[in-house]
């Protein structure tokens, strides 16, 4: 667990995308995803262009297909639901490989498949090129309320600590012959979770004490946030503009 969970998204590297200021990457990722989402589902050509652009960005960032695929597994449950739509959907049907599938359902499934996959790829690229602390600096730079970024920071910092607490408790339970395999054994598991909650709360108290001991009075001290160079903003703006131009064209030619 030494390498941590939340850091597994990051790909060590020094590409242009790695070097772009985090606030620009956050804004660009957000606006690009919006552009993808508003694109009408009939505009296959537009999705093709997005795909080309995303593959180009991933290549620039030295992201391998294998790395991307592993991180995109999270999408699978959503895709499974999407695949049910043509089967369960009503209205006119078409015959595909002997199956009678709902036409509206097919369109819906395609819509989810295309937009979710492209949107997630953008998030994977953002995560692969930006370390977690940098993302938080970026959010600070975008004037996100400091309490929000502080909470996110604590989450990032302590998730591994809490998970390792949890795994130690699991080992302690297993060492006394508890095997959590069957629903009847859920009781001890649930109680352990309760203990976990109390322990985490106590840790919160201790962290708060340590913060007060170093002069904390209720607001996180502002950190120095390096300003993003104009040239990088222009680069990010150009990518956003290109995506939005494609989306606008797709909407207008529908």
């Amino acid at each position: 667990m030494a390498d941590g969970h939340v850091h597994a998204l990051y790909l060590h590297g020094n590409s242009v995308l790695h070097r772009v200021a985090p606030q620009i990457k956050i804004v660009a990722a957000f606006l690009i995803v919006i552009g993808i989402v508003v694109t009408p589902r009939e505009a296959f050509w537009a999705f093709g262009l997005y795909l080309v652009a995303i593959v180009a960005l991933a290549t620039v960032a030295h992201i391998t297909p294998r790395f991307a695929a592993r991180r995109m597994v999270i999408e699978v449950p959503f895709l499974l639901v999407a695949l049910l739509l043509p089967i369960l959907g009503g209205g006119s049907t078409v015959e595909v490989f002997g199956l009678s599938l709902s036409q509206a359902g097919l369109w819906d499934a395609w819509n989810i498949l295309a937009k979710a996959t492209l949107g997630l790829s953008i998030a994977v690229i953002l995560g692969a090129t930006t370390q977690m602390p940098e993302l938080l600096v970026g959010l600070d730079g975008l004037k996100m309320p400091s309490i929000v970024t502080a909470i996110a920071g604590f989450m990032v910092r302590y998730i591994d600590v809490i998970l390792s607490d949890w795994s130690r408790m699991r080992i302690a339970m297993a060492s006394r012959a508890h095997g959590a395999r069957w629903i009847t054994q859920i009781g001890p598991m649930a109680r352990t979770l309760g203990v976990m909650f109390v322990r985490t709360y106590e840790r919160g108290e201790r962290v708060y004490l340590a913060m007060r001991s170093r002069g904390y009075t209720g607001s996180m001290p502002a950190s120095a946030i390096p300003a993003a160079p104009v040239s990088q903003w222009m680069l990010g703006g150009a990518v956003i503009a290109a995506v939005w131009a494609v989306a606008a064209l797709a909407v207008l030619t529908r």
Partner: peptide, 30 residues
């Protein structure tokens, strides 16, 4: 609190920022 610096028993309680530098900065920034 500035004059008396306390190093607590569990360093995980004390290192709450996301990087080492930001953590060491916490006190002086305050």
């Amino acid at each position: 609190r500035r004059r008396v610096g306390v190093v607590f028993q569990d360093p995980d309680d004390q290192l709450f920022m996301t990087t080492v530098r930001r953590d060491v900065e916490f006190g002086p920034r305050n």
